[in-house]
Design a protein around this nucleic acid. Sequence first.
DNA 1: CCTTATTATCTCGCTCAGTGAGATACTTGT
DNA 2: ACAAGTATCTCACTGAGCGAGATAATAAGG
Lengths: 151, 151
Amino acid sequence: MPDQRYEEMEIVHLLRAVAVDLGRHSARFAQRNGMHPTDVRALIVLMDAYRAGEETSAGRLGAALGLNSAGTTALVDRLERAGHVRRVRGERDRRKVTIEVDERAVALGRQHFGPLIDRAVGLLSGYDERELAAIRGFLAGVREAAAEEGD
Amino acid sequence: MPDQRYEEMEIVHLLRAVAVDLGRHSARFAQRNGMHPTDVRALIVLMDAYRAGEETSAGRLGAALGLNSAGTTALVDRLERAGHVRRVRGERDRRKVTIEVDERAVALGRQHFGPLIDRAVGLLSGYDERELAAIRGFLAGVREAAAEEGD
DNA sequence: CCTTATTATCTCGCTCAGTGAGATACTTGT
DNA sequence: ACAAGTATCTCACTGAGCGAGATAATAAGG
């Protein structure tokens, strides 16, 4: 690691620190609402899919989180018991169960993550087009690298 | 959320995706080495402290990870059993136990995270000083926001 | 000093998230 | 209709992390 790369290394460590801090932030959300980190991750997966216009079955949810079927059932039980989620039997294929997020869970999430998102957007409004492109390009590149690095 | 902010929102979501993917990357490291996510987090805390020239006691480690004393003891037992870490009784204060990371664990970590770090540094080398400042500023700002947002 | 409070770690018994094996219910291809 | 395949669920179990409290070392007061 030559000295010339010092500034770059610092930024890479900063990115890792941000990832850790964002993790802590969502862990706080989990704890305040009597949930576990996995439950929050599940809600995020469900909401992302919803925004992309896709339905999420129990199986897809479990796969996205790296859980087996037993763990997935337990997870959905937990979320349903807490009222964050509803099971809906598939119409076309009656084996499937699609998981729908309750409006109150969405509101809860917006209440907790909204301020942070607003602040981040606010930060970005101070940069010009070329700077925004640099930020976007770096993040997209790291994302691709992290995905590829996993065989 | 007015339409003008669309590009900013996209970058914020990208950052969140990067955080998730980095989490997955370190989860893979954990699984490949028969460890749990908490164990990896612990090693990162220990190595960060080491690089900053600080010793880490069992108590400090537990506090950094949000574990109570029982969980911390179990964690250190696990890491020690796997040979990633050594317990060293404090010299001045013999109640304390400082945790030292074994060289092999450091090498293991470098082997897994090294390529990703190199690629991230490589990405950054394509940007000029102003673009680097934008990336650094945005990440530092988000980090601060995430920390402050937690009461 | 000797007693009492404080601090750091550990032990014990427990809860509960997640696993593996396999049951159940529905769908599809022949 | 029947076998094979797919989606979810049930059950018994493992192990991470917790609460309560034990143990041992240091610090503070009389």
